[in-house]
């Protein structure tokens, strides 16, 4: 399969045969099979999301929260406030959006590069390969909060290993820098997110490489193709279907990432680490302004739908041309 949205088109051919009549009699079967999934999605995702969209048009503040159905309808006011880049609320949302975009790009690209490097390097056997592979997968299996909280401990200015390593052991720079406050906080959260995410890229790309038939390589090896050229002309194109999905999935996860800033910074989040999910959480829960928070979430959702739509269209068009 090539992309998520192409699968429907690749639906199985309706095979003509003796079972046709029986199949028609059982037209309800696929629906019955889907029912549990649909029900769950309705209950947990769709209905709550529609409720959230409705909330975004109300002034759901602490004055109305205990009788939230009676919160006054304010039309697009919450959206106007959120999009007014000259106001205090809108400008901080825009800043957070910018930080999140930069964060997503950096984390996805670097994770992909690391994952690709590791997958290529581990593609051919050498001594200790399976041990290395196992080690690389560990960060993906470590529960998210356990990993991130360890990083929080490591990034402490006076008691953390990072400053100890850089300043005391390696003698880089003078005076221990802060990693969890100020502008370096951005570097920190990017590194932590990469630590957690790159094994996933590695895993997917490794799986993808396994399906590249090895005779392709052998043929090109006889041509004396250089390793890098070989990677560019054979490996990369073969991995294209994986990459299309991998980049999309990782981007969505990273963009919506709430857990990493939440565990890494706690209540003392620095401006440089103000990722958008966390920003909206604070806007909703810390200030009790659920109407405004919902409006921001809806804007975020619209943005993601748009980007995903454009991405898939471009990718599909290109693959059709190819």
């Amino acid at each position: 399969m090539t992309t998520t949205l192409q699968r429907p088109r690749k639906a199985p051919p309706a095979s003509p045969g003796p079972h046709d009549r029986r199949r028609r009699a059982r037209w309800w079967l696929p629906y019955a099979l889907l029912a549990p999934a649909v029900l769950m999605e309705l209950l947990i995702h769709l209905v709550p999301m529609l409720t959230g969209i409705w909330m975004s048009f109300t002034q759901l503040t602490k004055f109305f929260i205990s009788s939230w159905t009676e919160a006054p309808f304010v039309g697009l006011k919450n959206y106007r406030v959120a999009l007014d880049v000259h106001g205090a609320v809108g400008s901080s949302l825009l800043r957070s959006f910018g930080i999140t975009c930069a964060y997503t790009m950096l984390v996805v690209v670097i994770s992909w590069v690391l994952g690709m490097a590791a997958a290529v390097v581990l593609q051919r056997p050498f001594r200790g390969r399976s041990g290395v592979r196992t080690l690389f997968l560990v960060p993906y299996a470590v529960p998210m909060y356990a990993g991130v909280i360890t990083w929080n401990f490591m990034l402490q200015r006076d008691t953390g290993v990072i400053n100890h390593l850089l300043v005391d052991d390696l003698g880089i720079g003078s005076g221990k820098p802060f990693w969890l406050i100020g502008s370096r906080a951005f570097t920190s959260i990017v590194i932590v997110a990469i630590w957690r995410l790159w094994p996933f890229a590695f895993l997917m790309l490794m799986a993808g490489l396994q399906s590249v038939p090895s005779d392709v390589y052998e043929a090109s090896a006889m041509d004396g193709a250089h390793a890098f050229r070989q990677w560019r002309s054979i490996t990369l194109p073969m991995l294209r279907p994986v990459n299309v999905v991998l980049v999309l999935v990782m981007s969505l996860w990273v963009f919506n990432d709430f857990n990493t800033p939440y565990v890494l910074f706690g209540t003392a989040q620095p401006a440089a680490g103000d990722l958008i999910s966390f920003h909206i959480y604070n806007a909703s829960f810390l200030t009790w302004n659920f109407g405004a928070g919902s409006a921001m979430s809806v804007l975020l959702l619209l943005f993601l739908l748009l980007v995903t739509g454009v991405y898939l269209t471009v990718v599909n068009r290109r693959s059709q041309r190819a």
Binding site: P48, T51, L252, N256, S297, V298
Partner: peptide, 15 residues
């Protein structure tokens, strides 16, 4: 179903 991957958790937490 796939697009639910895009939902920000904060949006439907309280609802």
């Amino acid at each position: 179903v796939l697009s639910t991957q895009m939902f920000p958790g904060v949006l439907f937490l309280l609802p």
